[in-house]
């Protein structure tokens, strides 16, 4: 009984940790605008945390540049289990206009399995909200699988 409550609460209080892998900050501003009064992600329980240790949803924005590559990999490794990776905007998924440049190390897919992606070059806050809501459901399922496994 207690376990089911924990699974449900997993979806109700997903904490976000934001990694900027070389983004032009367009998506970063949009992500933070999700917490403003107009869109208010906090009513779904989202909260921005400072450390990967307390993160559930890791939101990555920006084409993984070579500078941020090993830092990204190290920080992603430090996030405790049932975690969900959300890629914000088109850059992480494909490198957008920076595709093929000497300092971009390919899509995020190479380093971790991306659960939810949001298209759009700076996606609208509602799109990010929908993605985060989807991510929190995936989080609850992952917790259930982790428990059964």
């Amino acid at each position: 009984m207690f376990q089911r409550m924990i699974d449900k609460s997993m979806a109700k209080s997903p904490w976000i940790f934001h990694i900027n892998a070389g983004s032009c900050n367009g998506c970063d501003i949009e992500l933070v605008s999700v917490l403003t009064p107009r869109y208010d992600a906090e009513r779904l329980g989202f909260r921005l945390t400072g450390t990967p240790r307390q993160a559930d949803i890791v939101v990555v924005s920006g084409p993984v540049t070579s500078q941020t590559k090993d830092r990204l990999v190290r920080t992603l490794a430090q996030v405790p289990e049932p975690r969900v990776v959300v890629s914000l905007g088109s850059c992480p998924r494909s490198g957008n206009v920076f595709k093929g440049s000497y300092c971009v190390d390919g899509p995020l897919e190479k380093y971790t399995h991306v659960d939810v992606s949001v298209g759009g070059c700076t996606p609208k806050p509602e799109a990010i909200m929908a993605a985060l809501a989807k991510a929190s459901e995936i989080l609850a399922e992952k917790r259930k699988e982790m428990r059964q496994a």
Binding site: I19, T51, P52, R53, T68, D70, R71, L72, V73, R74, T75, A77, Q78
Partner: peptide
């Protein structure tokens, strides 16, 4: 060398 157990240095080693 598993970075999972490194203390968090905001990404740095």
């Amino acid at each position: 060398c598993d970075p999972k157990y490194d203390s968090f240095f905001s990404g740095e080693a």
